[in-house]
C-alpha cells in the first residue's frame, strides 16, 4: 500500500463525494424550502443519465448532449412538480414518501420500456478518455478529474446564488417565512417550481456525469439516493454546507473503506477471514458512520436554523 495508491483512492473518494453532493444539494434545498421529502430525486438522476446517453448517440456531440440532458431533466422535474408534488407540500411526510415511491416505480418502468432493462454503456468522446499524469507514477483519468472540477464549481456557484443573489434571498426567506415572501408579491408557486426544477437539473447533472463511469440502468437512482440520505442525515437537513461536508466525508469513507479495509484486516486476522469480512464491513461503513454521528448530534453536523 504505497502513497500513490492511497492518493489515487483519495481522488476517487473526492470524485464520488462531489457526485453525492450534486444529488444532496438538490434534495436538501427542496426539503429545506418546500418541506418536501422527494424519494424520486434518484429517478431524476437516472433520467439525466439516460437522456445524456441518448442525446450523445443521436447528436454525436458530448457537450450538446450535456446541454440537452440538463434541459431535459429540468423540464421533467418541473413537470413532475406541477402535476403531482405541488399538492403534497401541505401533506405529511408519509404521504410524500408514498407518492414519490410511486413515482420511482413509474420512472424505472418507463425507462425500461423505452431503453430496456439491461445496462446501457456510454462511451466518452476521445478527448475525455485519456489519463493525465498528476505525479510521476500517478496517472489519473481526465474524466474523473472533470467530475471533481464540475462538482466543486457547482458548490461554489450554489454558495454564491444562495448567499449573494436576489433568488437566493427569496429562497432563504421562503424557507423561514412563506407568508412573508408571498406578501412581498413574489409568486411562491412559481418560485417553488423553479427551485424544484433547479434541484432536478442538479440530479440530472450527477446522473449524466455518472453514466459513463457506472453505466445507466433502471433503478440506478435508488442506490445512490439512499447513500445521499446518509449524506444529508450526517450533514444536517436543509444545509448546503452540511451537504458538501457530508458528501465528501461519505465519499471518502466509502471509497477508502472498499479499497483498504480488506488488506488492513488481513494484517490482523487471517487472509481468508478478511476476504469475507472486508467487503461486508466496507459496505456497512457509511451507515455505521451515520449512526455514530447521530448518536453524538441527532440534528446532523450542520443543522440549519428554523
Amino acid at each position: 500500500m504505497n502513497f500513490l495508491v492511497v492518493l489515487e483512492q483519495i481522488l476517487n473518494g473526492l470524485q464520488f463525494g462531489v457526485m453525492l453532493f450534486l444529488m444532496a444539494a438538490g434534495l436538501t434545498l427542496v426539503f429545506g424550502i418546500m418541506n418536501l421529502v422527494n424519494l424520486a430525486h434518484g429517478s431524476l438522476y437516472m433520467v439525466g443519465a439516460y437522456l445524456a446517453t441518448a442525446a450523445y448517440q443521436w447528436t454525436g456531440s458530448f457537450p450538446l448532449a450535456v446541454v440537452l440532458a440538463l434541459a431535459g431533466t429540468l423540464i421533467v422535474g418541473m413537470l413532475v412538480e406541477v402535476v403531482t408534488l405541488r399538492t403534497l407540500y401541505e401533506r405529511d411526510h408519509l404521504d410524500q414518501v408514498l407518492a414519490t415511491f410511486g413515482l420511482i416505480l413509474f420512472f424505472n418502468e418507463l425507462i425500461a420500456i423505452i431503453w430496456g432493462r439491461s445496462a446501457l454503456y456510454t462511451s466518452l468522446p476521445r478527448y475525455l478518455e485519456g489519463h493525465v499524469e498528476l505525479l510521476s507514477g500517478l496517472n489519473y483519468p481526465v474524466y474523473r478529474l472533470l467530475i471533481i472540477f464540475v462538482g466543486l464549481a457547482v458548490a461554489g456557484l450554489l454558495w454564491y446564488v444562495v448567499t449573494r443573489t436576489r433568488l437566493g434571498m427569496l429562497i432563504r426567506a421562503g424557507a423561514s417565512n412563506r407568508t412573508m415572501v408571498a406578501a412581498l408579491g413574489v409568486n411562491i408557486r412559481l418560485l417553488y417550481t423553479i427551485v424544484f426544477g433547479f434541484g432536478a437539473a442538479l440530479a440530472g447533472l450527477a446522473g449524466l456525469l455518472a453514466g459513463p463511469i457506472y453505466t445507466a440502468q433502471p433503478g440506478m437512482g435508488e442506490l445512490i439516493l439512499i447513500q445521499v440520505f446518509v449524506v444529508i442525515v450526517i450533514g444536517g437537513i436543509g444545509s448546503i454546507r452540511g451537504a458538501l461536508f457530508g458528501a465528501v466525508l461519505v465519499g471518502m469513507v466509502d471509497t477508502l473503506g472498499r479499497a483498504f479495509l480488506k488488506p488492513m484486516l488481513a494484517t490482523v486476522i487471517s487472509l481468508e477471514a478478511a476476504q469475507t469480512a472486508g467487503p461486508a464491513l466496507a459496505s456497512m461503513l457509511i451507515y455505521v458512520l451515520m449512526a455514530v454521528v447521530l448518536a453524538i448530534r441527532p440534528e446532523g453536523l450542520f443543522p440549519s436554523r428554523g
Partner: peptide, 12 residues
Amino acid sequence: QLFLGIFLVLVV
C-alpha cells in the same frame, strides 16, 4: 410497475 406507480400516486 408503471401502472402500480400511477396507482400509488393517485391513492395518495
